[in-house]
């Protein structure tokens, strides 16, 4: 009954059928199975329950399970489609699909918007943008005066907030991101093209034979 032991020794939940996930995403069945090898590695790194907890996600990203990072938190929350505090295998595959090189740019733009819309209001507000700029400065140990930060935020709003209402809505974001594709570089993971090469041991798990 104890929380700690049930978290440590719970049986792995049966993961979703690879063929269903392959139909819904850019990945083939083999690639989904290869992703399971990666998922399993991450999801058993601390809690051994076949679910990715935030600490395990941070450990995989930063080699440190306690490292707090606003943007890693946002990614985790968006991957956690059911919003139950853990990432299941289906959520992992459906979310990584966005980062596949072959996924349409519109999907990446939409995902990035949700990342940056910190409070989920349907637009990126000035305060949110400033909060994110302060977070990246803090993360990078960069020191900038408040005036300089305000200037960066102002200038970005001048470029992106086309109707000047003090918020960047989804259409303004689409226009801005389309004009500045370098902003979306972090939305594409070349690794996903070669996932079966990176994790070839999937054949031991798969038996799917395709």
């Amino acid at each position: 009954m104890g929380c700690a032991s049930s978290k440590q020794f719970k049986r792995a939940p049966h993961h979703e059928d690879a063929s269903i996930l392959a139909k819904e995403t850019t990945f083939s069945v083999n690639e989904v199975e290869a992703l399971y090898v990666l998922f399993e590695k991450i999801s058993y790194s601390i809690f051994k329950d076949g679910l990715i907890h935030k600490e395990e996600f941070q450990l995989a990203l930063f080699k440190n399970s306690n490292r707090k990072n606003l943007f890693a938190d946002r990614i985790f929350d968006l991957f956690d489609l059911k919003r139950n505090g853990v990432i299941e295998f289906g959520e992992f595959v459906r979310s990584l699909h966005i980062f596949h090189p072959d996924t349409p740019m519109e999907d990446k733009i939409a995902f990035a918007f949700r990342l940056y819309d910190l409070r989920g209001t349907g637009s990126i507000e000035r305060e949110e943008l400033k909060e994110m700029v302060l977070a990246i400065l803090n993360e990078s140990d960069l020191l900038l005066s408040d005036d300089a930060v305000e200037q960066i935020v102002d200038q970005t709003f001048q470029q992106a907030d086309l109707n000047g209402d003090g918020r960047i809505d989804v259409d303004e974001w689409k226009a801005f991101a389309s004009k500045n594709p370098a902003l979306l570089k972090n939305m594409t993971l070349p690794y996903l093209k070669d996932i079966t090469m990176a994790f070839p041991s999937f054949v031991l798990y798969s038996g799917s034979g395709d």
Binding site: L38, L61, F71, A72, D73, Y116, N186, Y191
Partner: peptide, 25 residues
């Protein structure tokens, strides 16, 4: 120079977005 910076370009460099690290063995 801060005046030539785009906030989103700055933010997109966060290590938190570096999902490539998930694939490191």
């Amino acid at each position: 120079k801060p005046e030539s910076m785009n906030a989103f370009a700055l933010i997109s460099r966060s290590q938190g977005f570096n999902l490539g690290n998930l694939f490191e063995k």
